[in-house]
Amino acid sequence: MSILTTSVGRSARSPLSPGDAAGLLLYRNFLAYRRAWYIFVSGFLEPVLYLFSIGVGVGQLVTGFEFNGETIPYADFVAPGMLAASAMNGTIMDATFNFFFKLKYNKLFDQMLATPLTTMDIARGELTWSLLRGGLYSAGFLVVMLAMGLVGSWWALLVVPAALLIGLAFGGVCMALTTFMRSWQDFEYITLATLPMFLFSATFFPVTAFPVVLRWVVELTPLYRGVVLCRELTTGALSWGSAVSVVYLVAMGLVGLLVVRRRLDKLLLT
């Protein structure tokens, strides 16, 4: 994770440390959203409603699935999937629309670059903010899961950091893609990618339902890695696959972060 702590292109005499810089960006976003807290509510509610509708409702008709050798009730199966999806959706909201607005319309980054802040500071700070939003949704969702008795292991406490990893991965890549967007319409491409992931990444039914080839494809998608990681944690069935998921998500996030910085250099430091 050295990329998150070392300074790239930073003068030794800069008055800000990378941590200070990220903190200031978070503070700025906090101030901006303080008046609009209600927009957080819909993002939180969505996966909860899915849980009730499909996990509990459809769950009446489904006996349960086998997961890592154990049969678990359907709601227990769906809940960690929704938790992972809420981390993805929460993060993407800030990493796409809000990031685009700041980049193109609010000219926020132009003003930041007139100060000692660097493009790397901006990339890190914005990514941290967006993954925290996803993390907040996930933490809220975990409380709902606890209240409904859907948590089977103390490992479940680790789903919050796992959700942050999902945020890191999706936030990094979506911010990177957003730097290439020309208009609001272009964001349809992101929806086009995330909606199938939401529906088919072993969120509502096990990946074994797919033919072998398709199954491989699904297992390579980032949300699948996130869903499985969360499910392993909430059911307490950890495996080496969990470590693979962690490495996968971290790598995806860091690649995204580096692309974001390079793109900001290209777009803003002309």
Partner: peptide, 12 residues
Amino acid sequence: TDGPEIRARIGV
């Protein structure tokens, strides 16, 4: 090489 330090000392 000293962008951040310069920007710390100028106003834009």
